[in-house]
Each structure stands twice: as structure tokens, then as C-alpha cells.
Simulated scan of single mutants.
Amino acid sequence: MSYAKELQVAELAVQRATLLTKRVFHEKAKGTTSKDDKSPVTIGDFGAQALIINAIRKNFPDDEIVGEEDADDLRQNEPLRSQIWELVQKTKLDDDAAEAVLGGPLKSVEDMLDAIDAGKSAGGAKGRIWALDPIDGTKGFLRGGQYAVCLALMVDGEVTVGVLGCPNLPVDDKAPLDSSIGADQNDEEGKGVLFSAVLGHGATSRPLSRAGLQPSQPISMKPLSDITQATFCESVEAGHSSHGDQAAIANKLGITKQSVRMDSQAKYASIARGAGDLYLRLPVSKTYQEKIWDHAAGVVIVGEAGGTVTDAFGKKLDFSIGRTLSANKGVVAAPKAIHAEVSKVVIEVLSSK
């Protein structure tokens, strides 16, 4: 299957949601609250989730959705609820045909809250299930770094469609990565990319737009004949990924370049288009489980761009179990030709601890 309609709806829904997140990105006060795990959530997270889930429900009413947020706190917080509703009402694409594809606006505050709460699926191995992270990299979003709006469709546990909206990445696929890209960013002219992939059909990038979809071009990972020249990406937050283990792996591989630290699935997007080469996210805890919405879109985009993504021990990431990757630990993403070499060193370093 080509999943043409699913891809179109996902791309337009993510593109429209980035308009909302960009509006919040420029505000000093982002309506931030804390969840039970102490991670931050903003009015942008809630608003983007409402818009995207509304579009999915209008087009694919029988599909399930695994979303990161829920509306429990909003039902008790009228000022925050009103802020989000105002944002949602203001956000639309400057293209009536594109808006029609998405199924029209949310009709009321209750409609908005119900849309947010429609992301409570438990996930699983059967049927069509969307994985949504309305703002991946919220800490990056808050500090003015990288973030991504992420949406993927899983069919019987296999990720088949993936879309990433990265408002602060350069449009130019050939723009090199350097250590400054993780902080002090903006979405000015020349920034803002929509990355997409369908399983078996390749990966693309295109500029984000306020209207319909712009022309796309295929992307691919960079051929890497000398692994010592690789650029590797990792998370900014030490709580998300073991910087020490990753430095040891880079050293064993002979990589001398400084790592590029950035938040969100912008890392997957950056290596998929050849701006970087490797993405390492190694476990910091024996009990931590990765969330499916933090990886699903990026995994299919990297895979379709010529890469391989496994966990830290070489196992395929299993999205069929539920809301987390409970059968996996960590992430290693690299071009197919060198993934086995990288994976071998990762296992050596982790096994020596």
C-alpha cells in the first residue's frame, strides 16, 4: 500500500500544528506545567495534540491514537484551557483546500478536550495506531533550541508512515551540523523542514509552509567510507542518554569530532538527510522505558533514507507491545553499511561496565 491519504493528512496536520508551536515558541510565557514524571508540558503541546488528533479522527475515525498528553489537568484549569482554545482557534493553514483535507476546525472547548483525550490508546500489535508527540523536545522548545512535531502510523505493530515537523532546522539538506545547532535557534527565513517517509517508498524533505505542501525532494543518509570522520548526534539532557558511554564509543571508533547535542527527533531527521551520521541514545537506567512516540516517526524516516535503527544490543525496536519500547534498551541509528560495526562497539562498551 502507498498510504497516500494517510501521508497527506499526516503532513498537513503536522504542518498546521507547527504554526501553533511557532506562535508559542516566540512567547516568553509558554503556559508551562509539570507532569507526574516532572517533565514540562506547555500550551503548545496541548494545542498541537488537539489539532492533529482532530484531523486524524475526521479522516480515519476507526484508528486508535497513542498521544503523549491528556486533558485531565486542563479540565480543572480554566485559564490554561482558555489560552489553549484561543491558540487553536487562531491556527489554520492559508489554503482552503488543505484545511478541507484536515476536516475543518474544532467546534468547542469540549471538542478540543475530547480530541486531546483521544490519545489514550494502550497501543498494541493489531490494527492501525497513530503515535503522536505534539512537541518532542519540550525542554529544547523552552530554552530556544531544537524541537519536533512528530506523528507516525503503525499498522499491526509496524511503523509504516512517519512525519516530523522541525521548525528550527535549516531547509538546506546539505547544511552541515555543528555543536551550535542545539541552542539559541530560531525559525526565521531559511528554517523549517517537514520530513516524511512511507515504508518501502523512500524518505523526503520539504520546506514548512503556512499554506499547502511545498515541493519535496528525496533524502538519503551520507555514504561514510571513514567512520572516524563521522558526526554523531546525542541528546542534550544527560538524563535521557548516557553521555559518558557515548563518548567512550566515539573514542573506540576513532571519532574525534565533538558530538552534536540537540533535543528531539530532529536528530533522526538530521542523520536521515546526511547532515549527521550516527545517533546514539544509550540507557541511563535499567528501568527506563523509551516511549513509542519519541521514536516511531524517526525510525521509519531513517530506515527509508538508507539507515538501520536498533536498540543498544542490536535488536529491532518493537513498537507492538504498548505505549513504550519495553523490549528494548537504548537506540543506535547509523547508515546500513556501518551499523554492524557501530553496534559491535556499543555492545562492547556496555558489556564492560
Rank of each mutant, 00 (worst) to 15 (best):
V193D: 00
I219T: 05
P207M: 06
I249E: 05
Q214H: 10
Q246R: 09
N251P: 00
K191F: 14
M221C: 06
Q217A: 15
L224N: 02
V193F: 06
F195Y: 13
S242T: 12
E234S: 13
A238H: 04
Q246D: 09
S205V: 08
N251G: 06
S196G: 07
K222V: 10
V236G: 01
S241T: 15
P215S: 03
G190S: 11
V236P: 00
E234H: 07
I249D: 05
R206S: 09
E188I: 06
G254P: 09
P207R: 11
V198W: 00
V193I: 10
L194V: 08
R206C: 06
G200E: 03
G254R: 13
A211P: 09
S216G: 12
D187F: 15
S241A: 13
T231N: 05
H240G: 02
L199D: 10
G244W: 06
E188T: 04
Q217W: 10
I219Y: 13
A211F: 05
Q229K: 15
A248I: 09
E188Y: 08
I249Y: 03
A238G: 08
R210V: 14
S205Y: 01
I249N: 01
A250D: 05
L253K: 04
V236F: 01
G192D: 06
S220C: 05
S220E: 12
I219F: 12
G244L: 10
G244I: 14
H201C: 03
H240K: 07
D187T: 01
R206Y: 03
V198H: 02
S242Y: 03
S225M: 10
A248P: 00
